[in-house]
Structure formats: C-alpha cells, structure tokens
Simulated scan of single mutants.
Amino acid sequence: MKRSIPTTLILLALAGPALAQSSHQGHGAAPAAGATPMGKMGMGMMDMESMQAMMKTMMPAAGDAASTKDFKAADMKMMHDMAVPYTGNPDVDFRAKMIPHHQGAIDMAKVALAHAKDETTKAMAAQIIKDQEREIAEMREWLTKNAPK
C-alpha cells in the first residue's frame, strides 16, 4: 500500500506530542516494571526505534475491532492537534498543548460510551467528558485574557 505522507515525516511531526503523551500516561502512575517511559534515550528523547514501535500501534490494522479503530483515530487526531508551535511562554504553551490533549480524552471517552459494555466504564467516560470540557473552557478563557496578541 502506497502512503501519501512518508512515514519519517509523520514520525517527525508527531515526536513532540508523542513524548508529551508518553510521559503523561497513567496520569501519575509509575511505569510498569522494566518499562522506560521515554524510550531508550531517557527523559526528553525518544529513539527512532521506540517512536516507530509506538506509531505502529496507532496505525489502523485490517483486523482491528471497531472500537480499536475509533480509539486509534482519536489517538492520531490528538497527536496531530498537539503539534502546535511553541511560543516560549510556558503558561501559553502548557495550555496550547493541554487543550488538544484534553480533547483527545473527550474523544476517547466518546468511543468508550459508544462501545463499552461495563456501566462503570461508561460512567467514568461521561465524567471525563464533563471534566475535560470544563477544563478546556477554562484554558481557552485564560488564553483569551492572557495570551499575547
């Protein structure tokens, strides 16, 4: 299958957001025994092999369940949307990256609502949507009032 965008270009475009996401997995949970959260290169750097392995897990596969396809689409959209230029202002940059990160959580929660069977999963997803929408609104309001024009 011929791809319209070279894999290397995709990897480079997603490197920063991918690192942000991988370091945020579990929202404070310790990595699994033996896991290296930032790849083989350590904090702030992910080697190409680790990045390619991570990207491969996000690409749609023919045998994926419908929910998996939807989760992967949400993951890719979030990673794409997180690729915003840095301003050098940590207050602005934090919010500019967190807004699409939170939107990704909303999109994943919507997938869970559409596909999950467990009522506690659905309740958690509904709460995540509520909380993340509120936080996105707060961040956008702050940016409107405080970001340099």
Rank of each mutant, 00 (worst) to 15 (best):
K145W: 12
M1P: 11
A13R: 10
D131I: 02
I106V: 15
E141G: 10
Q132S: 08
L19D: 00
M59L: 10
M45D: 04
P31K: 08
D81I: 03
I99C: 04
K149M: 15
K2Q: 15
M46T: 14
A18T: 09
M124H: 07
S22W: 08
K69F: 00
S23F: 09
A35C: 03
T7G: 09
Q132A: 07
A20D: 06
T8V: 13
L11K: 06
G63R: 01
I136E: 03
H24S: 15
M98P: 04
M59I: 08
M98W: 11
V111F: 01
A61C: 00
G16I: 02
A66Q: 01
Q21R: 06
I129H: 05
A112E: 14
P37A: 05
T68A: 07
D93H: 10
K77P: 02
W142S: 04
A105Q: 03
F94A: 10
V92P: 15
I128L: 09
D93S: 10
P85R: 07
G26K: 03
T68G: 00
G104Q: 09
M124L: 12
D47A: 10
Q21F: 11
T87Q: 11
K117D: 14
H27Y: 08
A32N: 00
A30C: 06
M82V: 02
E141I: 06
D107T: 04
A83L: 09
Q21M: 09
H102Q: 07
T36F: 08
K2W: 15
M58A: 01
L19G: 15
G39V: 11
